Simulated assay, not measured.
Amino acid sequence: MRERVLDLVFLVGVLFKGIDGLLETIGGIALLFVTPGQVKSAAHAATSKELTEDPHDLVANLLVHGVSHLHTGSQMFIAAYLVLHGVVKLAIVVALLVGSRRVYPWAMAALGVFVVFQVYELVTAPSVGVVVLTILDVVIIWLTWREWRRNRELRKTWRGTVDWIFRRHVTS
């Protein structure tokens, strides 16, 4: 049972990494075409109603505070980071979906590099978002290592997990 749950967590994690990679890539590209002032205006417009209702809203305040120090140089760095991080995640997910086990060590190494950078960011400029992202990346690295060690391709894990879910659902 524990193994099947971990398989499911791995599959869901890969799915979310793909979605996250796509959103990061789109967001990074979008940041290349807007000014810091436009980003600040969008953040204020997106949060103004919520902050009127609840001036202590954590997410809204983090967003407004995060963009308040934005300038062209930092925005370009963030855009480049998001595009690179997103494209790498998308490449990893596509390679896993294609079924190549050879990509597992590369996926773990790429995510490991991002984790090292994120830990550096946590030391120099702590943020809740980076903590969550780092924890998720570490969990995905561990689950990817587990799959690689078990000598399984994503398709095999997918089939086994789907069979297990439907078998459990039908017998319940």
Rank of each mutant, 00 (worst) to 15 (best):
V113Y: 06
V113G: 14
F114I: 02
V116D: 03
V116G: 09
V116I: 15
V116S: 11
F117C: 10
Q118H: 15
V119I: 15
V119A: 11
Y120P: 02
Y120D: 10
E121C: 12
E121H: 13
V123I: 15
V123T: 11
V123D: 04
A125P: 00
A125F: 09
P126A: 09
P126N: 07
P126C: 07
P126E: 10
P126K: 01
V128H: 09
V128K: 06
G129Y: 11
G129N: 08
V130K: 04
V130I: 15
V131H: 03
V131T: 12
V132P: 01
V132S: 01
T134K: 05
I135H: 04
I135L: 13
L136F: 09
L136R: 09
L136D: 00
D137T: 06
D137H: 10
D137C: 05
D137E: 14
V138Y: 01
V138F: 04
V138Q: 02
V138E: 00
V138T: 07
V139G: 00
V139T: 06
I140N: 05
I141R: 03
I141D: 01
I141N: 05
I141T: 04
I141W: 05
W142L: 13
L143I: 01
T144I: 04
T144L: 10
T144A: 08
T144M: 11
T144V: 02
T144H: 04
W145K: 08
W145L: 06
